[in-house]
Design a protein around this nucleic acid. Structure first.
Lengths: 210, 210
DNA sequence: ACCTGAACACCGTTCAAGT
DNA sequence: ACCTGAACACCGTTCAAGT
């Protein structure tokens, strides 16, 4: 039994039941083993979870050919969407990615690629570094807010709308007026909206720097 | 013993030891009580944590007078900085705020106020709603990334720089080149940078809509 | 009627005993 | 030398017994 299979199984279980509900006993049983055996392959639950987080980051696939010939703006959009898509496939893993700066091998590779992308399009080093950080924050922040109170996404959206609509309009005139807008916009579209805000800002920063 | 005192004490303990390390026994002892007694005031640890999260949101104070006469851009900046400042005082609470859409009374009030701010400056309803979401995502996402691997902020920044610098420059040329930029920029400045990107984008969206 | 000590089922982790 | 059953300390939660 190698670490890869343990991490794969842990990710599968987390996708099904969440981080909170994953227990080492459950994981051991799924691997036809015992909890004590697991400890021979990693140092504790926290380290295992870090491996799972990096495993998910490794799932983000942006073939270099796909970015060839694109403007930096298009290339960043493709990359951010790929990242976002992967996070949406593993919503239960999001708290792990948000809780700390990812420094596993796959996290480092992703960081390296995006900073290189900015540099290759003439961004000054400082702007490239901060652009990377801002976009990373945005994608993770957006994804984590989206997959909120545990319930499945479609249910949740309409539940949230019901909640907003049930509020007293006298106390919350703006929130109730915007209830439809806050919850009915397709999430992909809302993701694009915020991303475009950031890209508009970066475009302006590049013009100002030139 | 009222719920307010329980939540205040829980927040104090979380500020000191973190969410993971807070136990109901510890909380009960700090209140000179027993765990069973706590359950008469809330339904379980999760509900208590939701109360703590909303308690923190209630700490964000932006007096209406302070926003009088400001442009929407200035007013949003003041509000976002106040929010950010409060989150920095309670970094251990961040995972709670990121894990779900805050629907407690203080969360609702904050949402209402910011959407109203946009509306009062002529933003269309849809743009106001999405601007609120984008900025909320950004502030929480930025804050949560900033307070990463458990270690205190100053240590962490230099630790992270050492980590980046120790990488093989042949494998990670961009990351090592940007190591200084990634970790040495004052955090407040970096926060402002990303926020300004968003505000630039919103300004453009307003011009396009007009 | 209200409160709570003590117990319950279960967790992450460890280690002495097995092979 | 390697593996692991069984135990340890402790968790969130519950309830029957006290006041």
């Amino acid at each position: 039994m190698d670490v890869g299979r343990i991490v794969d199984t842990a990710l599968q279980l987390i996708d099904e039941v969440g981080i909170q509900a994953l227990t080492l006993r459950m994981l051991a049983e799924a691997l036809d083993s015992g909890t004590a055996t697991l400890y021979r392959h990693f140092d504790g639950k926290d380290e295992l979870l870090a491996l799972v987080a990096d495993r998910v980051l490794g799932e983000v696939r942006v073939p270099a050919e796909e970015l060839d010939g694109l403007s930096w703006r298009e290339a960043v959009t493709v990359s951010a969407k790929a990242f976002y898509g992967t996070l949406c496939r593993h919503p239960n893993v999001l708290p792990l990615l948000a809780a700390q700066v990812p420094v596993g091998p796959n996290g480092l590779r992703a960081r390296e690629r995006l900073i290189t992308l900015f540099l290759s399009h003439g961004f000054p080093l400082g702007l490239a570094a901060r652009a990377f950080t801002a976009i990373g924050h945005y994608v993770i922040g957006f994804s984590i807010q989206q997959h909120g109170p545990g319930t499945p996404p479609p249910e949740e959206q309409s539940q949230l709308r019901d909640y907003y609509n049930a509020l007293d309009p006298a106390s919350y005139p703006a929130t109730t007026a915007a209830a439809e807008e806050l919850t009915s916009v397709p999430l992909d579209e809302e993701f694009r909206f915020g991303l475009d805000l950031l890209l508009d800002g970066l475009e302006k920063a590049m013009l100002d720097a030139a």
